[in-house]
Design a protein around this nucleic acid. Structure first.
Lengths: 337, 337
DNA sequence: GAGCTTGATGAAACCAGTTACATATGTCAA
DNA sequence: TTGACATATGTAACTGGTTTCATCAAGCTC
């Protein structure tokens, strides 16, 4: 193409170093990997050569021998929700204990994008995958099956699932929130949730609510998972002629948005309306009023998933599914009806 | 799927496929990379063999030839702040246009951890790096210099910096916020900010405030960058005998925390106290009241950084620094004093 | 029918490391 | 003095792909 590239950019390799140091490539390799077996003198000679030539070993060449690339991928719907951010932080921390790096790819909650991203992760050599939810495109399944790529499902517990799941029971989590409201006497409850399309966690939660024994009114409102989305929902609910007595949000981000939206309309929580969330983000304890929420153990989930995947990769033995438990955290956003 | 027998795990390679299809390795390689030049009959034969042997080409072996691993790393202080999440989302989106994957590593705002993470990114073959701020440890600088690794600084603009910077003027951003408050007549302003240790962006903002011509009182309060941290700051400021008339937060996350903290003390914004933030997160437009903030163009920054890095990698030509501009967005959290 | 081009394929070199095995030297006990 | 053994290093065969170049047959021109 353009032959006016200023630098030919000739990265030096093992052979160059060996020649410069007057030793064999094997010795240089030893200096790099088990320096103790090399005689001190030789070691220094080689290290000098390495420094002089600014030699940096090629990761690819290493990988080709060990068969290991030392990184895995995680596919999450978005980074723009603290719940995933917290999960990924824990995941990354624990993976690095296993000398594994993490590539984060976002799917924008689309199974199609997920399959694409998975493909490119595989292409660049990911040794394993952490994914969200049990529902995935056929292309995705084919991909990981062909490559027999260790893949762990998170945010969802289902021991029957072909891929091991490490997560919680979404239906039960939502029911915990509903039960709390029901116990407080609420009979007209609005559920605010994110998009159900391509999101089996939300669907499972909604199903959980529907099958829960409750003879009151349960309406649902779908919105974007963001503070703005929550605020939109609040505006809608606030304008209703017969306003529900409680709002159950399937995500704390949405809940905070709803809370702000209600506040903008001067609707007092919990006096005029009760609210429960699901996630229990740290933020939920500082909102006004502090938000009652169902705690999802995402940090723990990140750690367990990291351990399980690392183990799978090294032992070639798929792990068992693991259930993590959710828990209602009662604060001040709910009140007897 | 989960058979108890430890799988022999004999991944098939090009040679296996070639033998099975009765062709040479070169032909198999062609089928993979330029299928059009292969005779249709042969093509099918090979593809059948590939399918039967569940052949998946080795990324490492590819990389060794092309010299390209097709991924880069990004080092950010945390994922637990929407401002970085937004930046990374844009970065990742744009990088994928260049067929590059992104490895996100968090430094927990420690230069030491940053250097470690950079090392492991390099070890696994990152082709370039996106980093935050211009201040880094000597170990880090040595590392990227030795490897002559394309590295772009973000969130900070400084054309003098040895590494190209793509970002904004942090001092100016903070000054924009201060100027607004000063113009509204505020003379007693509290600045709430995150840790200054290992954070040159915050330091630059603080310096910007200090050198701004202003003869009123300017106090500072350092806290954690989180809603909780902001709420803590609000509690402190609310209890002060002589309360400032305005609070300037160097981060919107902190600002929302402060807002909630003030609300918990029944201090009305903006009637009793004005507030300005820096970041302009989407959330800031739905808070009560909507938060006046200085917009930081982080999505744009992500895109520019991605283009610049991709270009650097392919052309071996370091890009020029690029300044992106910040802008005050006036909402309802500020009022004339 | 010779000469030339085109299309399809294969042999082998090559990328940059690791590693099994061979070799050379030195130490020590028998 | 010699055999046993440890230490230090080198040679060359790997790893799993890509790529250059050579080969060969078929199609076309003159």
């Amino acid at each position: 193409m353009t032959q006016k590239t200023p630098e030919p950019k000739k990265r030096s390799n093992l052979r160059d170093v060996a020649k410069a140091a007057g030793v064999s490539v094997a010795t240089v390799s030893r200096v790099l990997n088990e320096p103790t077996v090399v005689k001190k003198e030789t070691l220094e000679k080689v290290q000098t050569a390495i420094a002089e030539l600014k030699f940096v070993p090629s990761a690819a060449a290493r990988a080709i021998n060990s068969g290991r690339t030392r990184f895995v991928g995680a596919l999450v719907p978005t980074l723009d929700n603290a719940i995933f951010a917290r999960f990924l932080a824990a995941l990354e921390r624990k993976l690095s204990d296993h000398q594994l790096s993490l590539i984060v790819a976002t799917t924008e909650a689309s199974l199609e994008i997920e399959a694409e991203k998975a493909k490119s992760l595989l292409d660049i050599g990911a040794e394993g995958l952490i994914i969200t939810g049990i529902t995935h495109s056929p292309a995705f399944h084919e991909l990981i099956e062909r490559a027999s790529l260790p893949t762990i499902v998170t945010s969802f517990f289902n021991p029957e699932n072909p891929l091991p799941t490490i997560g919680y029971d979404n239906a039960a989590a939502a029911q915990l929130a509903l039960q709390h409201l029901v116990e407080l006497g609420h009979r007209d409850i609005a559920v605010v949730h994110g998009p159900v399309n391509d999101n089996d966690r939300t669907r499972a939660r909604l199903t959980g609510l529907k099958v829960f024994p409750f003879d009151g009114k349960l309406s649902t409102f779908e919105t974007e998972i963001s503070h703005q989305g929550g605020a939109d929902a609040a505006k809608h609910l606030g304008n209703l002629s017969s306003r529900p007595t409680a709002i159950l949000c399937l995500s704390d981000v949405v809940a905070l948005g709803v809370l702000l939206g209600l506040q903008a309309q001067n609707i007092i929580v919990p006096d005029q309306i009760s609210m429960v969330g699901v996630d229990d983000l740290p933020t939920s304890s500082v909102t006004v009023p502090p938000l009652t929420s169902v705690h999802l153990p995402v940090s723990q989930m990140g750690e367990r998933a990291a351990d399980a995947l690392a183990n799978w990769i090294t032992t070639h033995q798929a792990p068992k599914s693991e259930e993590l438990f959710t828990q209602l955290v009662v604060r001040n956003s709910t009140k007897r009806c």
